[in-house]
Design a protein around this nucleic acid. Structure first.
Lengths: 193, 193
DNA sequence: CGATTCGGAATGAACGTTCATTCCGGCTAT
DNA sequence: ATAGCCGGAATGAACGTTCATTCCGAATCG
């Protein structure tokens, strides 16, 4: 039982690293098998196909990502500034622990191989972000731009930064992250000056 | 001669669309041939390999992108605010005319299939942006974050926005673009309030 | 308690398919 | 007429997937 669960996890872990490093199409099943230290056929004991595998992986991590942001989220009586901070630090915690997963989600969230379930799980996560943005816009604290655009700005900036951290170009320090958070907030908030 | 140049261009145009839509690995040479309305073998009359083709395409468009930003760039006596605006509107002009190319460059600027020349051309473009950021930091107008991070924030936000425009999720209006420009500037500048 | 049987998990060689690339017969333009 | 460009069938490598076989621990029997 232990070993069984372990192999499945080994396959998922190996896939995530390879998909993040090389992309889905450039990763072959034998590559995954080698990294997971299982036979190529074993992968098909746990997953119907390479496509099914990537979808399981995607859904798994999108759900976790959403959980990081939603956990202890200040309710709608809280001010947008602290809600933003909560979401952003949730993203940071996820990114710290699952840097490859963040990159994998980011690159593949519109990929052609995603099935309906994967798209649905992703949209659920986005719906949460829309509700936050709309709340802030109603209070005249967040810029009145399309919600998609505001989310794109923050998400784009954030994933890029973690791309640089992933590659070792910049160091992930508390100060840097605090500054980036402020920078992203300044991008979406309405300014008085 | 006319026809010859035309075929080469057809191949490049078809490749750009397909690489942007499906990605490099999921685009086959016969697909390119069909879209370009040439035989598969003809592609190899103009390019050594699929890899060589994608590198030519990448370098071509990175150079054009850089040209859009650098043309009429205000010299270092100008203030960073107007320099930023110039760069940003250069990016917008490029993105408007070559939306697929922007997406293609963005997604593939770290791809494993890029050769030394492609990386060099890309780095040249980045060097220009570094010099702008450093200039602004020295004048205490731009946040003292790593230049890579500041560029990533703006670039990440910008390419995401054009991703949405490309997909038709949001409309590309003069007002939206002006707001996004302001939003990105607010992300990198030092605030007085 | 050791020997034997058993069943499902694991394997990797082999399969059909599809890829990037080559090659050559025919077509075009002069 | 013919030189050279062109197209698409041919090719071999590599892909995702399958399946006959091996392996291994638990259950059963003597």
């Amino acid at each position: 039982m232990e070993l069984t669960a372990n192999k499945r996890d080994n396959i998922l872990d190996a896939s995530l690293i390879l998909f993040a490093e090389r992309g889905f199409d450039a990763t072959t099943v034998p590559m995954i098998a080698e990294k997971a230290e299982v036979g190529a056929g074993t992968i098909y004991r746990y997953f119907d196909s390479k496509d099914a595998l990537v979808n399981v992986l995607f859904q798994e991590y999108v759900k976790r990502f959403a959980a990081y942001m939603i956990k202890d989220y200040p309710d709608s009586s809280a001010n947008p500034r602290s809600q933003f901070q909560h979401i952003f630090y949730g993203m940071i915690r996820f990114a710290k622990e699952h840097t490859n997963a963040l990159y994998f989600i980011d690159v593949n969230c519109n990929a052609r191989f995603l099935d309906d379930k994967s798209r649905e799980v992703f949209q659920e996560m986005m719906a949460f972000l829309y509700s936050f943005v709309d709340h802030g816009k109603r209070q005249n604290i967040i810029r009145s731009l399309p919600s998609e655009a505001l989310i794109a700005v923050v998400f784009g900036a954030f994933t890029r930064i973690y791309g640089l951290i992933r590659k070792g170009v910049i160091q992930e320090t508390r100060e840097l992250l605090a500054d980036i958070e402020q920078s992203c907030w300044d991008a979406v908030r309405i300014h008085s000056d």
